[in-house]
Design a protein around this nucleic acid. Structure first.
Length: 816
RNA sequence: GGGGAUGUGGCGGAAUUGGUAGACGCGCAUGACUUAGAAUCAUGUGCCGCAAGGCGUGUGGGUUCGAGUCCCACCAUCCCCACCA
């Protein structure tokens, strides 16, 4: 039996065999506990990137581990197949997006298979398939009927390059560029569909039911941006109410002016004749500003007086109303009460325009003699109220609540919560997405397409223009239809849905991807849901991972799921970088192509290296030399597994040491897999390999100890390197398949060390190391330590002042 | 400006969570095998020092018998959010 390890041959052989024997068919089995493991599905860009391998193969290893531990594991795969690149390819290369997408999927399926992952392809879901988007549309209708979808005209972020609107999350960077193409994003007034994700802001802030990384929870919390305070209504002199939100109702007496966003609907009405020109000049100047300029915090404040005044409801003071671009229409009510003494921005504005600054919070230690404030004082924890009538002398810490109570009694305001989270804009002016199933009728308004007419199919006979404008808008056959209610001629919605809509519910479609009667089979759902372990990149923290939570909460209202949280546990992997420690990119020329690696090293080696070079959540640079370590490990495992061992004599000590190592390895690998620490698990298996190598060379261990070691090494390695372990297992005459074997158990007694290295310190510095029997009493260890020659030398004549014994490990002697 | 994370040999990274710093791997050095190389095997490998010994986890302080780990201040890098009222 002198066959060489040929990875490509072995991998092909077993991938075929697994396929034939349906080893990875995943079906309901109520005799077993279920485990729904899921890794984020890829976009079919055409080529599998090493990043996909990095995201998916450790996730696969974890799923395989859970399977061997006895769980019935569901580990599906699919494609998030709608989206812009397909359309861009269509425009550039004159290929239909559908053709492009499905060709890519075909190619990527093959690449994904080369990973040797345990995906159940029977459960594959493809979001661009009509049988899938039928249900995406159905969900849109459900949300519409639940009043969670609405249409409004809004100034939305628009990418001129992609010719479509973007969700706020898809606008990136200080310069506010398009997530996809990098072009600067502009504002545009359009009628758009929104989902009321803000209705769930409070529940989305509650992470108590899920075990997600702190980082993601913090990012989502900041994104939702809850702040508490009060809504207070100021009235103009003409009696027009201007509601404002403030987090500092305690500073109301210091509100010496108001500022409205230039887009505020009241601006036109209240501006006095004399200020008309100045105001309209300012508004058009603002419109010309890019968002880059407008939203830079350290920019000098600009603004203009409207000529109008409002009445401060707490003291009836007459305060001027200004407009300024530092107040944003999209947050709160688009208007603020300005308290220059206690808000940095208002202070800067008041200073520039010579507006009154009234101190209403007295900072501790400050007196009247200190003169006017030189900067805003905004502490929420220190200071007391002044110039605030009956509240004078109230500490700030109590004042906020007291003022709210008083405002409510007086009818001037109410306690309020405000969120930074906006409703989710889902309309896209693009072709390659799920059409929004709405028909506009002159008499009946916006009417949802009846269920029996779903899906609203994307027409295939479309022409793409270089401008990127959606060809749906030009497709007469698509646009013109009849109203489902009154049967009169009507017009179809030509926008399609944000692809995040498709990926918000794919974990449900996997349950029964071919079901034509419902989004998913409830029986499957009852068994598999929710997802137990989700893995994927951190970049989705405030997008996909918020959307899918919202979606599931809404699905709970629809009665489709029991729990409002889609994924119980989440793990974020890091990123593989290029050899130069930089993000991989074509322009840098540091891209690592997995297909070539598989050719050269085999999938098992690539998998092992990816899981070995760093802890999974950290990521790190790829290194072509570094892959040699895992490569040697696997070729050694191959040799060891095929070795025939016939010891002339057995060295009891070596035999015992090998058995101990075996059980220590099982223990270490088991706990490491549980915590996604594949790197240290592999290190433990390498130690095992080293010891087996040594035993083989010396030929001094029993056949029992040897086979126990080799078999358990194969079992431990199986989740990471599924092909080579299957082949070795099979060649050793073990039953098919290694992947359905029980996860090995370790014996604590066998794993126990029988000797220890006692570390002896004097004043915390290591002065001796003594090999001694394990399990001795503290007193015995202390005696042993004190007897050390080296210790005596360092101790001198004085008796030790103190001796600390760390059980079974260390003795520290404090000099007298 | 706010929030979060990270900093350990030539390199990737370990460290039972306050108890031997540097596991495991790469690389390197020396040796073996070889006509030679590749591969493989053996031994060594934090730094300074012939040695005894000393120094060492971004920097400076502190707590402790004992600190990579805890506390305070600072430096550097990365990520997220950002005129959010």
């Amino acid at each position: 039996m002198s066959h060489e390890y040929n990875p490509n041959e072995v991998e092909k052989k077993w991938q075929d065999q697994w396929n034939e024997t349906q080893l990875y068919r995943q079906e309901i089995d109520k005799s077993k506990e279920k485990h729904y493991a899921m890794t984020m599905l890829p976009y079919p860009s055409g080529d599998l990137h090493i990043g996909h391998w990095y995201a998916m193969t450790p996730s696969d290893a974890r799923a395989r581990f859970m399977r061997m531990k006895g769980y019935n594991v569901l580990f599906p795969m699919g494609f998030d197949a709608f989206g812009l690149p397909a359309e861009n390819a269509a425009i550039k290369r004159n290929i239909h997006p559908m053709k492009w997408t499905f060709a890519n999927i075909e190619r990527m399926r093959g690449q994904l298979r080369s990973m040797g992952a345990m995906f159940d392809w029977e459960r594959e879901a493809v979001s661009a398939d009509p049988s899938y988007y039928k249900w995406t549309q159905w969900f849109f209708k459900q949300l519409f009927e639940m009043d969670l979808a609405y249409r409004k005209k809004a100034a939305v972020d628009y990418c001129p390059e992609c010719a479509t609107t973007l969700a706020r999350e898809q606008v990136w960077g200080l310069d506010r560029h398009c997530e996809r193409c990098g072009a600067p994003v502009i504002k545009k007034d359009l009628e758009q569909w929104f989902f009321k994700i803000t209705d769930y802001a409070e529940e989305l802030l509650d992470f108590s039911k899920i075990d997600w990384p702190e980082r993601v929870k913090v990012m989502q919390t900041n994104w939702i941006g809850r702040s508490t305070g009060a809504n207070v209504t100021f009235n103009t002199e003409d009696g027009d109410p201007i509601p404002v939100f403030t987090t500092r109702p305690d500073t109301l007496w210091g509100a010496t002016f108001m500022v409205l966003a230039p887009e505020h609907p009241l601006v036109n009405k209240i501006t006095t004749v004399g200020q008309k020109t100045a105001v309209s000049d300012y508004i058009s100047a603002t419109e010309k500003l890019t968002d880059i300029d407008r939203e830079t915090a350290d920019r000098e404040k600009t603004g203009v007086f409207t000529g109008a005044y409002a009445i401060n409801p707490v003291n009836n003071a007459k305060v001027p109303i200004w407009i300024a671009d530092y107040v944003l229409m999209g947050y709160g009510s688009g208007a603020i009460m300005a308290v220059p003494a206690h808000d940095e921005r208002d202070f800067a504005f008041a200073t520039k325009f010579g507006l009154d600054i009234v101190e209403v919070i007295r900072m501790p230690g400050r007196t009247d003699e200190d003169g006017p404030l030189t900067e805003a004082y905004s502490s929420k924890t220190e200071g007391t109220l002044v110039n605030s009538e009956q509240f004078n002398g109230t500490p700030v810490t109590e004042a906020i609540d007291k003022v709210i109570v008083w405002l409510e009694e007086k009818g001037a305001g109410t306690g309020a919560v405000n969120y930074r989270l906006r409703d989710w804009l889902i309309s896209r002016q693009r072709y390659w997405g799920a059409p929004i199933p709405i028909v506009y009728c002159d008499t009946c308004g916006a009417v949802p397409v009846p269920d029996d007419q779903l899906p609203v199919m994307l027409p295939e006979d479309v022409e793409f223009t270089p401008t990127g404008e959606s060809p749906l808008k030009l497709h007469e056959g698509f646009i013109n239809t009849d109203c489902p209610i009154c049967d009169e001629p009507a017009i179809r919605e030509t926008d399609t849905m944000d692809t995040f809509m498709c990926s918000s519910w794919y974990q449900y479609r996997y349950l029964s991807p071919n079901d034509d009667d419902q989004p998913f089979d409830p029986e499957e759902g009852a068994y598999w849901l929710p997802v137990d372990q989700y893995t994927g990149g951190i970049e989705h923290a405030t997008m996909h991972l918020i959307y899918t939570r919202f979606f599931t909460m809404a699905m709970r209202e629809m009665g489709l799921v029991k729990e409002g949280e889609p994924m119980r546990a989440l793990y974020n992997q890091g990123m593989v970088l290029g050899e130069d420690n930089e993000k991989m990119s074509k322009s840098r020329g540091n891209v690592v192509a997995p297909d070539n690696l598989v050719q050269e090293f085999g999938a098992d080696t690539v998998r092992t290296y990816l899981m070995f070079f760093s802890k999974w959540d950290q990521g790190g640079p790829w290194n072509y030399d570094g892959i040699k370590g895992p490569q040697r490990l696997l070729s050694d495992v191959w040799e060891l597994a095929h070795l025939v061992i016939e010891p002339d004599s057995v060295d009891e000590k070596a035999d015992r040491a090998l058995r101990r190592k075996t059980h220590q390895m099982i223990r270490k690998v088991t706990t490491d897999y549980e915590g996604f620490a594949f790197n240290t698990a592999i290190a433990a298996m390498m130690e095992m390999r080293n010891m087996l190598n040594d035993a083989a060379r010396k030929n001094n261990v029993s056949a029992e100890a040897w086979h126990e070691g080799v078999d358990n090494l194969l079992l431990c390695l199986a989740p990471i390197a599924p092909h080579i372990t299957e082949e070795c297992w099979s060649n050793r005459g073990r039953p098919y398949s290694i992947h359905t074997q029980d996860w090995p158990k370790w014996d604590e007694e066998t794993a126990k060390d029988d000797s220890i290295t006692l570390v002896v310190q004097v004043n915390g510095k290591v002065r001796d190391k003594i090999e001694t029997e394990a399990g001795q009493s503290d007193d015995a260890l202390q005696e042993l330590a004190l007897a050390s020659e080296n210790v005596q030398k360092h101790l001198g004549d004085n008796p030790p002042r103190k001796v600390i014994v760390v059980k079974g490990r260390l003795v520290n002697i404090v000099k007298g």
